[in-house]
Amino acid sequence: MTKVKIVFNQTLMISTAILFGIGIQWWIEYMSGGSGTVVWYWYSPFEIIFTGFMGAVPTVLICDWKGRGLGKMRLGIRLFLHFICLGAMVSFCGYLFKWYGGWKEYLPIAVMYVLIYGFVWAVTRWLTKSDAKKINEVLKEIQDQE
């Protein structure tokens, strides 16, 4: 059940990130004098959700977030693998659905991917740290004196 939940959450997160990327790309185009118009077919939303789902698979396979187990080194390796596999999955789906035709069109997508991945990672880290700070404040008040 936990894995199903992870896949569902990741699908939503990656789909949102793709939509955010598309939005930013077209906003940049609009700001630099372009039309800023997106051609949106009936199947476009399904393509995005499918890509989100495919991107969730590496998360389940690579990221063992449960329990103890992973040291910093192994965690770093897994994270790097996750970054590569997720990028590969998005690139593959992008190629399959003809989101880009050549390197020139692929490059902004790749840059956007790196930026979004970094941003999500940084926000998650910041949220966890802020949670730890709040928890420590409450713990100080209730902990036993030894």
Partner: peptide, 15 residues
């Protein structure tokens, strides 16, 4: 809980 001195955030969301 009363025996926890402090918590520290780890990279993967666990503490």
């Amino acid at each position: 809980i009363r025996k926890i001195k402090s918590v520290k955030a780890e990279m993967n969301g666990r503490m």
